[in-house]
Amino acid sequence: MPEIQLPASLADVEPVRSVRTPAQLDYTFTAGDATTRFLKGITQKKIIGQQANPDSRVYVPARGADPELGAATPIEVEVAQVGTVTSFCVVNLQFYGSGMEIPYTSALIMLDGADLSIMHLIQEIPADQVRIGMRVEAVWRDDADIEPTLESIKWFRPTGEPDDVNVRIPGEIRGTGLGSWVGGVAPTELTVRNPRTGEGGTAEFGGEG
């Protein structure tokens, strides 16, 4: 670091080395069309997904666009309130602002009828017994407390059904999403079938080749 020449008036005082510059920005977040539809469904204790056409993937929660097709998702689809755990993690840290008792489990849950996992809590089972393939169901708040928020579902709990041993990892069928990476192979234009044109893709990634 270069030698700094200070004026005499500052030669013998404790130098400032850091400064706090806190800043707060206030916004009014608007949910837009797709998220508003999803959250209004929640107030009726329905889980509503969207899709671009009757044959394309069902996104829950939807953002209004199908990232495979680059198309709007005008069709609303109610999906099941039961699904399969496709991945999970056990949280052993107390995060600021979280009232959760640790350890607890956050999981990706593929609801029956959906093509995208939602992330939610798993409760009513010890954390060390949660597993991929486990069947779970939504547990809603009391009706009086239902609001347009995903927190209206308190958590998911085991249904007691047998595990789905053929658990469908998101995207596996069409070679997209988490499943594409199973086996340690990254998705590329060569290995993945193009969902718009139907071209390309090796067999394990949904193509013919």
Binding site: P22, A23, Q24, L25, D26, T28, F29, E78, A80
Partner: peptide, 25 residues
């Protein structure tokens, strides 16, 4: 299960909520 409910119905009022972002730098 998983039947299409409908093509889009009127969404009505768009939901909004306060969002406060703090940068405690």
């Amino acid at each position: 299960m998983c039947d299409a409910v409908t093509d889009q119905t009127e969404v009505g009022e768009i939901l909004s909520a306060p969002l406060i972002i703090e940068y405690p730098f």
